[in-house]
């Protein structure tokens, strides 16, 4: 399973938002964490791709008036999504061990 760097970030954001992960909230979280404002098109595009890859599932929420009566689509991490994240982190860890002075580890985070 291959996912891109941006997809990885989106996946992380969805995971950390737990119950409240939908378009706008994910966008805000990413902006806050990375300091860069992701484009809404790129975000949605990534969400659909991740859903296709089985890393996310979506459920439709209720309509709210601040969205002009449109429903939200809430995303949750699947077991598969979780595995993908773990796999990536492992890879990073593996590499970081070989780099002098770089000391990453799981347990502490």
């Amino acid at each position: 399973m291959k996912i891109g760097a941006f997809e990885e970030l989106v996946l992380l954001a969805v995971g950390s938002l737990t119950e409240n992960a939908y378009g706008v909230s994910i966008k805000e979280l990413l902006a806050e964490k990375t300091g860069k404002n992701p484009s809404i098109g790129a975000l949605h595009s990534a969400l659909y791709r991740l859903e296709d890859k089985g890393c996310l599932i979506s459920t439709e929420g209720g309509a709210t008036s601040e969205r002009g009566g449109r429903r939200k689509k809430y995303y949750t991490l699947t077991a598969r999504g979780r595995d993908v994240l773990i796999e990536i982190s492992k890879l990073r860890l593996e590499f970081s061990k070989n780099i002098q002075g770089l000391n990453l580890s799981w347990d502490e985070s």
Binding site: G23, V24, K27, I40, H44, E60, E66, R67, R71, K73
Partner: peptide, 16 residues
Amino acid sequence: EVLETLQGDLYELYFQ
């Protein structure tokens, strides 16, 4: 299929 969510997000951002 895409329209409702996407439009909703855009609207929300717009009003913000």
